[in-house]
């Protein structure tokens, strides 16, 4: 009885507000995830999707993945892509946030305009960057040639190494506003008094930044990085439109490879095994996120 009473205290009212969303998630997110996990332990292909027995093959699909070179490429690609994107997005976004935090004319409208990349549908961005990076008609090659930095057009999207570079460029462009706005919001919460008193104490710019701005922004930075990681790690549309995993499977991500296995080659179980690898990695990061956002209160 006491427990029930305690449960209904003001603190817990929120649970009832969350309940509808929770049920929704259970049905539309929980069920597919569990179904997908079961699928990855079966052997489901074009032949037995509709009729016939779906044999349980235990970890066979996962074992097959270990020997699959495209899977290794896509796992490595996804990690490399995520880390590089995060680093550039975060550094540039942070710099812009600091810049626009200063008071100058049109600071706010310009910051608003900088959000445009985040508003454009990713498919549109992808097509745009595909044209920018085109070998013969691309603007980037034109500029580089005009500046005499290159003699011969760079085959950005048709060479394995540079195709990944182009993808990262496109995603950094999309991701900067996300980082900028979250850090900007974090900056506005730092009390001005702290800066005033530090300047009275004779702190210089670097000291102010290192001792006040960074420590007070730590929770924001953690959230931005972890959310950024999750968004970037599950990239699909950008890669699908720009390279479709090519050239020669060199830019496949876990998501695009999973799609290809499932819906182009009808290997549903292997495809869902790839999706589950993606899920597990993101779950681990998700746990870190929850830890990072809750530990401050203890």
């Amino acid at each position: 009885m006491g427990k029930i009473k305690k449960f209904f205290r003001y603190d817990n009212v929120g649970i009832f507000f969350v309940l509808p969303a929770f049920l929704y998630m259970l049905i539309f997110v929980g069920y597919p995830i569990i179904r997908n996990i079961i699928l990855s332990f079966q052997d489901v292909n074009a032949g037995n999707l509709v009729r016939g027995t779906k044999n349980f093959v235990m970890f066979n699909n996962y074992l097959e993945l270990i020997g699959d070179s495209v899977f290794k490429t896509s796992l490595f690609n996804t990690l490399r892509y995520t880390v590089l994107c995060l680093v550039f997005q975060f550094v540039i976004g942070f710099a812009l946030a600091l810049f626009f935090n200063r008071k100058f004319a049109f600071a706010k409208p310009i910051r608003g305009i900088l959000l445009v990349p985040w508003m454009i549908p990713v498919t549109v961005t992808a097509l745009m960057f595909k044209l920018l990076f085109a070998t013969d008609i691309g603007v980037i090659n034109f500029i580089l040639r005009s500046l005499h930095l290159i003699n011969k057009n760079v085959e950005w999207l048709t060479t394995p190494g540079t195709a990944m570079f182009a993808l990262i460029c496109a995603n950094v462009w999309i991701g900067i506003p996300f980082n900028m706005i979250l850090i900007s919001t974090g900056l506005t919460t730092i009390p001005k008094e702290l800066y005033e008193s530090s300047s009275i104490d004779g702190a210089n710019k670097v000291q102010t930044f290192m001792r006040i701005t960074l420590p007070l922004l730590k929770p924001t930075i953690e959230s931005v990085l972890i959310l950024g990681f999750i968004y970037t790690f599950k990239v699909y549309d950008l890669v699908y439109v720009m390279t479709s995993g090519g050239p020669v499977n060199s830019t496949h991500m876990l998501s695009t490879y999973s799609y290809k296995l499932s819906f182009e080659m009808f290997k549903y179980s292997k495809g869902s095994a790839v999706a589950n690898v993606l899920l597990v990695i993101l779950l681990i990061v998700g746990v870190f996120y929850i830890k990072a956002t809750t530990e401050e209160e203890v």
Binding site: F22, F233, I290
Partner: peptide, 19 residues
């Protein structure tokens, strides 16, 4: 805490639908 939990769940879940 709840917001964070839900956000993280939504982010992770998004990948399934994302395809």
């Amino acid at each position: 805490k709840i917001t964070a939990l839900l956000t993280a769940m939504a982010m992770t879940a998004g990948l399934l639908a994302g395809c």
